[in-house]
């Protein structure tokens, strides 16, 4: 899923500085699962913003709503009758949500409440980690099911580099060295020879470097 973190409240308050009436729009997709932008977090943000405003001696009217998803026009359409009633709309979806909203309702201002960080999953309750860099050409099967492009700080295909120590990456003790894990797994499997050939340079033309990506399923296009 897509992982995100909430923006600091100060940044959000700055965005809606001139607003008296706003709508906070949550999303029931990825951001609900990673507990950053679902109905619950919408309620918490609404309350926090109202507290901040009361402290300033001003009022803020906040309506709350959470859509099924914010990455499909059919759900975006569900707010068409009310979206114009507000001074601004805060979207708690990933970076996709406020863009779909902005396209659908060009006259309204939409602000992102979260910083979208990565594609990943929960490694324990309350902790999410990046697993995929969306490079457009999956190669994890060469590396024991682990992605060095997303998980090695230098995206090395022929690692580990000289900074690997104690199973950790040179950039931080909080970051596992994925190449340490790949080598250990291959060694345990008795398949170390899989890592002994020199992997050629990767083509990044399927990644973001090749320009914005687009996927088309002909059988579905109407």
């Amino acid at each position: 899923m897509i992982i995100a973190d909430r923006k600091p409240l100060a940044e959000l308050l700055e965005m809606i500085q001139d607003c008296d009436r706003i709508l906070i729009l949550g999303c029931k997709g990825c951001v609900t699962v990673c507990n950053v932008g679902g109905a619950k977090e919408v309620g918490i943000l609404a309350s926090a913003l109202k507290i901040a405003r009361k402290k300033e001696g001003r009022t803020l009217e906040v309506d709350e709503r959470t859509l099924e998803r914010q990455c499909d026009p059919e759900y975006i359409e569900q707010v068409k009758n009310e979206v114009g009633d507000y001074d601004a709309v805060i979207s708690m979806a990933c970076g996709v949500g406020p863009q779909f909203l902005s396209t659908a309702y060009p006259e309204q201002r939409f602000y992102p409440a979260v910083n979208t960080t990565s594609f990943g999953g929960a490694v324990q309750h309350g902790v999410w980690e990046e697993r995929c860099a969306g490079c457009g050409q999956c190669v994890i099967h060469y590396f024991g099911g682990m992605c060095p492009i997303a998980r090695c700080s230098k995206s090395l295909l022929n690692g580990p580099c000289g900074g690997s120590a104690g199973g950790k990456c040179e950039i931080s003790k909080d970051v596992d060295c994925i190449w340490d894990m790949i080598v250990r797994k291959k060694t345990e499997q008795g398949r170390l020879e899989d890592l002994l050939d020199v992997k050629p340079p990767k083509s990044w033309d399927t990644a973001r470097d090749g320009g914005p990506r687009r996927s088309v399923r002909e059988e579905l296009v109407q």
Binding site: P8, L9, A10, I44, A48, I51, A52, K55
Partner: peptide, 8 residues
């Protein structure tokens, strides 16, 4: 933490 962020 929320209160701290809000200066309370």
């Amino acid at each position: 933490k929320v209160l701290e962020e809000l200066g309370i």
